[in-house]
Amino acid sequence: MAGMNKLQTLLGDPSTLLRVKSGKPFFMAHMIAGYRSDSESEQVAQALVKGGADIIELQIPFSDPMADGPTIAVASEDALKAGATVAKSLELLKKVAAFGKPVAVMSYTNPVFRYGIPKFVKTIADAGASALIVPDCPFDTEEGQALIAACKENNICFIPVVSPGVPEERLKQLASAGGGSSSGGKDLLGFVYCTSRQGITGATSKFAKDLADFATLAKRVFNLPLAVGFGVKSKEDVQSLAKIADIVIAGSVFVDAIKASGIGTVEKTIREIIQTE
């Protein structure tokens, strides 16, 4: 049996699910590989880790990111123009993983499919990743099944992405994707990524009205830590989500910061957002 990966170790701590009660969720910081260049993105990762990120979400840029708003879509495009490739992103992943925090790799189905699903998953595992997020690949497709099998084999968590409005029936199907939370499912899925509303990433903090109820439902169905992201851009956003989330995710806000004043501001930005005093 494979040992626990870094993410499982982090979340496996018995105090994890108590984080919500104490109002101090983990923080997953999102970044784009190769934005604005390979070397800059390595520094961004370092700044995010120094600034207090518990988990790094590393997005491998894709030409047509359907779940991303203009901020991340344009940044992905810029990264590709600057020469980002899947191979280079995977090199960067090694360096980012070496900073010590668990890394979740995020991309879209096509680049992963083209690379070859088993090979892709093995490569990210070898590079030190703990989890994989592919928002446009439902688990009940042929490729979703292949991803699940490869993730199980390589001890990578395959993170389901859900949104307020997804019916309970579907949540149950997703929860049982890894063979049920009582068996391998819990280890396979790691945590549930819940978008704060229906729609796309981006720096507008309009959370769904029914987010809290949906979060409760999702936690009950999955019995897993719950991460909430999309539109998180301020300390206030983090604090309001702290009431329902075990993990809070932000991404576009760092792209905006880099755009406005360069990578030097990333560490300050994350510190400002996650301070809970």
Binding site: M66, A67, P135, P138, T141, P160, G165, V166, P167, T195
Partner: peptide
């Protein structure tokens, strides 16, 4: 060669 399917985020499932 079974092309087709529905490769979309879960929010579109229903």
């Amino acid at each position: 060669h079974t092309y087709g399917g529905a490769y979309v985020p879960e929010m579109l499932w229903e």
